[in-house]
Design a binder for these strands. Structure first.
Lengths: 176, 176
DNA sequence: CATCAATTGTTGTCGTCAACAACAATCTTT
DNA sequence: AAAGATTGTTGTTGACGACAACAATTGATG
């Protein structure tokens, strides 16, 4: 296959959204330097899912990093927040509200209970279910988590812009 | 999608330590939230990460469902799209461009090559790297995938609104 | 030219996460 | 009381991101 010349331009019409006029990439078949930026995404630029995936990756990494000192991950934070705002909820109710599997919530609560942040109190009215509560330690801890989470949220605002963040929240409000 | 409980199911007593006992909600007006939706999210409503997570979950599920007949997942689609638009790229270049680990790309390409969608051509200039190309079958397949992906994108527009989707893409453009 | 550092593809492990399936204990309904 | 549904639990599967290590190869340095 020595002569792959410019096979090229085959991307043809569909792309159109490429940023730079793509110079010589398909030349000798060599993946040369490509600093990495003149590679077109083609149809992906029009897909919300791709942008959202990249964004979520960034946002979760920043969240984890910002709350690294307290070792709290996004899902753990969401669970504690909901329990703190609605004491006595069952695991089923929390799982359904947050859109996570109740099977997964078991392990999440295990770790949070192990760290003495939440407690599973046997429900008085239904011996199957547990009433979830924050411990005293959990409440003060959550207060700190919220401060750190607010700091993380400022990082988001810095990244995409204050008003863009507002719009984003408004657009996606129907999913919360 | 799947899980609307048609209720008559009462979330009943168990969790209701604090919640109000869902008295009679006059069914007259808007058919707003059913069953257990008076659970507050507290600080979560102000966090972009939470909304984004829920959105991405929805969007990926719809993508997978919409492309279920061809058995293509979002990541596979993104890989094929980039290769289709930039034939001859190395695995390193694709991985870097899409923000996925090159280790992970190995398995991705294994499965795509197994299905005869892409091929790893030994690079003429660098015996370490492979030049990635779509096979003839891969090209026609990708064309169909793009049609289905466009259909999925219409679902997104229906869900959040046409102009909201546009804004979203614009806001998150810096991550693509 | 020889040597050392860097790159590329690959393999492997680890931990997170969503999706299911099954189960025992316990309501709820009939 | 019997049948059916719900709750918490355990387990499995598969996709996914992050890391670490390795052989082959390339590039840079002396």
């Amino acid at each position: 296959m020595a002569g792959q010349e410019k096979t090229s331009r085959k991307a043809a019409g569909t792309a159109a959204a490429v940023r730079r006029p793509r110079s010589h990439r398909t030349n000798g078949g060599a993946p040369r330097g490509e600093a990495g930026d003149d590679i077109g995404l083609d149809a992906l630029v029009g897909h919300a899912g791709y942008a959202v995936r990249r964004f979520q990756l960034w946002i979760f990494q920043d969240f984890i990093k910002t709350l690294a000192t307290v070792d709290i991950r996004p899902t753990q934070y969401s669970v504690m927040t909901v329990i703190g705002a609605n004491p006595g909820l069952s695991q089923m109710a929390v799982a359904k509200r947050l859109g996570i599997e109740r099977a997964r919530l078991v392990h999440l609560l295990d770790s949070l209970e192990e760290r003495d942040f939440v407690s599973r109190v046997p429900s008085a009215t239904d011996r199957r279910s547990h009433a979830l509560h924050l411990t005293a330690r959990g409440k003060t801890a959550l207060a700190q988590f919220k401060r750190l989470a607010a700091e993380h949220e400022r990082h988001v605002a810095e990244k995409i812009g204050k008003e863009n963040r507002e719009q984003l929240l408004q657009i996606l409000a129907c999913f919360t």
